[in-house]
């Protein structure tokens, strides 16, 4: 082994101009992209679950629920898009928990950078995940016969809404990631909450056949509100009120949990 001492003692490197908050956030985004390249397995998880759900529900339940699999697709595709985005947000919480348990965040926290930059970076990774998973589901849907009546503008609008939904819900798991030490626990807790919330909604079926008490829950379930808005956007029939209602939960979550995230992050032992 060569002796590293001599060379190091020569180099004294001064601090460059402090970078902008945006630049910091983009570096963390770049990290998220590198992760996709180095850990392609995570794409598998990301993509298999929605594909499985789409195929299972369409071909097994589709006929019984909507008369035919193709008929059911029109109902189900916007719903499964919402479910996928909501499920995806668990992964960034898991990633955060992993980083925290490994001490990587200690290094970030001793750097003179914008404190929220690592979280903004997680969000960049999230958006990529939503985009990839969403595109795959939409592609499968189109192959199977799904037709968004509003065409391309409807799809673009839908994806923008999906990003907003993902952004809002992401905070839940970022907070959980900060509180819970093990990534597995984040996942277990996450899905324990998410399964009932996504099933007790209008994603899979029209709530008209549910008992009255459940219908009243489903009606106010944020997931239902989002799904209704997304169906509207895809079909070109969405009203401003529908979109507004879909955004209530993401906006509230952001307002409440972003400051909490910062507070927890700064207190973190």
């Amino acid at each position: 082994m060569s002796d590293p001492v001599r060379t190091i003692s020569l180099a004294h490197v001064a601090r460059p101009q402090p970078p902008s908050a945006l630049s910091n956030a983009l570096v963390f985004g770049w990290r998220a992209i590198l992760k996709f390249r180095h850990v392609p397995e995570q794409l598998f998880d990301l993509v298999m679950t929605p594909i499985m759900f789409t195929l299972l529900f369409t071909f097994i339940f589709g006929g019984a629920l909507a008369g035919s699999p193709t008929g059911y697709l029109q109902w189900f595709i916007p719903g499964i898009l919402v479910q996928t985005v909501v499920f995806n947000t668990v992964y960034s919480g898991m990633g955060l928990s992993t980083d925290l348990s490994k001490g990587l965040f200690d290094r970030f926290r001793t750097l003179p950078i914008w404190s929220l930059a690592p979280f903004a970076g997680l969000m960049v990774g999230d958006i990529l995940r939503h985009l990839i998973a969403g595109a795959i589901i939409l592609a499968i849907g189109l192959i199977l016969g799904y037709r968004p009546e509003a065409g391309l503008p409807g799809v673009v609008g839908s994806f923008l809404l999906l990003f907003a939904i993902g952004f809002g819900w992401g905070w839940i798991f970022i907070v959980l990631g900060l509180l819970v030490r093990t990534p597995m626990t984040v996942m277990t807790l996450g899905f324990t909450v998410l399964f009932p919330v996504t099933f007790a909604s209008n994603i899979m079926v029209d709530p008209a056949t549910m008992p009255g008490w459940l219908q009243s829950i489903v009606e106010v379930n944020p997931v239902s509100l989002m799904t209704t808005a997304l169906r509207g956007l895809m079909a070109g029939t969405a009203t401003a009120a529908e979109i507004g209602r879909a955004l209530i939960a993401p906006v509230l979550l952001t307002l409440l949990l972003a400051p909490l995230t910062l507070w927890l992050y700064r207190r973190k032992q």
């Binding site: 601090r15 101009q17 630049s23 770049w30 750097l111």
Partner: peptide, 8 residues
Amino acid sequence: MLARLWGF
């Protein structure tokens, strides 16, 4: 990554 965070 760290060098970029420092502002290089």
